[in-house]
Nucleic acid binder design. Structure first.
Lengths: 193, 193
DNA sequence: GCCATGAGCTAACATTTGTTAGCGAAGAAA
DNA sequence: TTTCTTCGCTAACAAATGTTAGCTCATGGC
């Protein structure tokens, strides 16, 4: 017997906002439209969130926290650079796969955050990027990785990962784990036969 | 003696729109703000474009045309799959590098296109993606590439390329050609030593 | 000199925006 | 019962939105 978890209105607002912001863009979704999709009236939204920006803020920062947590857990389990990189790639993709709507909002709509949240968000993103680059830099120094421009390498890997929500949405048959494995393979071993 | 090319107001509108749409998002930029940045009043914009959507339309479809043209020229010069893929990667990056503002608009703001342009745009994007995947599929069949899920492979490469504007903006010292070369290397040969 | 065209302007429009004020019902706590 | 809190509602506001109407003035071809 599944116990029907009671979904609070607040959660419903967030889930609906994630979907709508993703589908049509933050700026194009009005409070009335969001409210209607939730099943209430626009002013009632303010019983749960201070403002429209407040909703976006929660979506973005909650996901940021998840990325950091998953990274740290994954990075702790491995010592060698190659395995460590593989682990954090999987962890990163796993967060995206578990938050397929909010991940897209996270990557595309954060520009609409208002100060000071915008500045805080940018800082977090940079810190996260640096954690990735650190693994690559250390691995390159030990000779585990080819010698390449580390910034470009990290950047390319990052770009490849940060669009996986698109693929995940279009290819249901592919398991998330298999996909992470294959992307890691491609990035580590290359496409050439 | 350089002949000062006369920049028409229309061109100025487009260039300014590209920059503003990129910086703040299409929906967040008003016609009054755009006009002020150009140095005219909002209604005067309508002497040059039919509507706000019309400006976005021109930006997106002009770049689409450039991508197709560059792809076809590059693909024609090479026979072997590996070299061909390298060539179209370079061509793709070259278009982005030459249109660093509009490329970002192209990738992020196209959702705001109104019908029927939205449908036309989606179709173009899909066709372009298919041209890429075609090279990969044929190369895989001939044994030039490792056997992988071709959709995922194409997707990963595409994702890596489509974010290069970000890197280009932040790393002036890197030449566009060198960057294209290095990304192609990474994707073809992998990061592992 | 005359007229057509292009391109700027001001004034104004109908809508839509995010948000607030304030009311009422329902349920919990005393 | 009384009181307090939660959460919905309607009405409304000020500001901003894209866009149109219609004017003026400069330019260039005839």
């Amino acid at each position: 017997m599944a116990i029907a978890a009671k979904v609070t209105t607040r959660e419903k607002v967030k889930l609906t906002a994630q979907r709508l912001f993703r589908e049509r863009g933050y700026a194009a979704v009005g409070m009335r439209e969001l409210a209607e999709a939730v099943g209430i009236r626009a002013p009632s939204l303010y019983n749960h969130y201070k403002s429209k920006d407040d909703i976006l803020r929660e979506i973005c920062f909650e996901l940021a926290a998840q990325f950091f947590k998953a990274f740290d857990e994954a990075a702790g389990t491995e010592e060698k650079a190659v395995k460590k990189l593989r682990a954090v790639i999987k962890a990163h993709i796993s967060v995206i796969a578990g938050n397929i709507d909010s991940a897209e909002v996270f990557f595309h709509e954060w520009i609409f955050l208002e100060q000071p949240n915008l500045a805080r968000f940018k800082k977090l993103r940079f810190e996260y990027e640096m954690k990735f680059r650190d693994i690559i830099d250390k691995g390159t120094k030990r000779g585990d990785f080819k010698k390449m421009n580390s910034k470009l390498t990290a950047f390319t890997i990052f770009s490849a990962l940060n669009a996986t929500y698109e693929f995940l949405r279009s290819s249901e048959k592919y398991t998330q784990e298999q996909m992470a494995e294959d992307i890691a393979d491609l990035l580590l071993k290359g496409l050439k036969a």
